[in-house]
């Protein structure tokens, strides 16, 4: 983006803040450690629990129901062709490539992204961010870096976890409704997917993690106008993160599966 397109963008200050946040994040993660300013591990773990572990039950529930639904849908279409044996393939590939990363990102946006935006926003309006700066503590280093790293680790981890549960959901349908045997389901599922399906899903969820956490932190750190402002920023961050994530998903799917 050159200066002119920036000047015409209605969200210009926000875009500028967002780019600045990304730059200083990169500085604190890639450059600062070489100047002796390491990041601390404890806050990263605390955020991993908060962002990731606490979202696991919700992820499990959603992934299971998606696995069940996928298998039933597939059964409905494939049975008429006499091709039920492909149900595991369909469940597996849809989960790994598309549904897994996207659905779990949606849950994490709604649960953890909004929480981060609201938390940082509350800190902003109660002068805590300003107090940090005055104590010569950089808010990006102290607040954003641990959340960023935690998200970058936990979203792909949750995605893998969700994929397993989803496949379990598919298995439940095949085993109990369609009388597949378990070994057959597992074998088919494993055969159908290649590692690239897994990797592409992981790359997607890492990119989504970046988008979600930077949008949430940016919204929180730039809140103005009291409790109302916090509410607006939180809602805004959820909407923006969802849109950005879905657009990015389409782009990545295009790159991964249609460019070759």
């Amino acid at each position: 983006m050159n200066a002119r397109t920036l000047a015409f963008c209605p969200l210009r200050p926000q875009v500028k803040n967002y780019l600045q946040l990304n730059l200083s994040l990169l500085y604190w993660i890639l450059i600062a450690p070489f100047t002796g300013q390491f990041f601390k591990i404890a806050p990263i773990f605390r955020q991993m629990v908060f962002i990731g572990v606490r979202a696991a039950p919700m992820v499990a529930l959603t992934a299971f129901s998606v696995g069940v639904t996928l298998a039933m849908q597939a059964a409905h279409s494939l049975q008429s062709l006499g091709a039920e044996m492909y149900i595991p393939d369909l469940v597996m590939i849809t989960l790994l490539r598309e549904m897994g990363p996207v659905l779990i990102a949606v849950i994490v946006i709604g649960r953890s992204g909004s929480a981060v935006a609201a938390e940082l926003g509350t800190m902003k309006v109660s002068e805590e961010i300003e107090a940090l700066e005055v104590m010569a503590i950089n808010p990006v280093q102290y607040l954003v870096v641990p959340r960023f790293i935690a998200m970058l680790v936990m979203l792909p981890a949750l995605t893998i976890f969700g994929n397993y549960i989803g496949i379990l959901g598919g298995w439940a349908v095949c085993r109990f409704a369609l009388n597949f045997n378990t070994a057959g389901y597992v074998l088919r599922a494993l055969e159908s997917a290649d590692t690239w399906d897994l990797y592409s899903g992981m790359i997607k969820s890492a990119v989504f993690a970046w988008i979600i956490i930077t949008i949430a932190c940016n919204a929180g750190l730039n809140v103005e106008g009291g409790a109302e402002g916090v509410g607006q920023a939180t809602t805004g961050s959820v909407v923006q993160a969802l849109l950005a994530m879905l657009v990015m998903n389409a782009v990545l799917t295009g790159i991964f599966f249609f460019s070759a």
Binding site: S126, E127, E130, M135, A136
Partner: peptide, 15 residues
């Protein structure tokens, strides 16, 4: 900033 301290009107403690 390392050379001075500041007490905010609201306290501004990290909650």
């Amino acid at each position: 900033r390392l050379r001075f301290g500041m007490l905010f009107q609201s306290g501004a403690l990290l909650a």
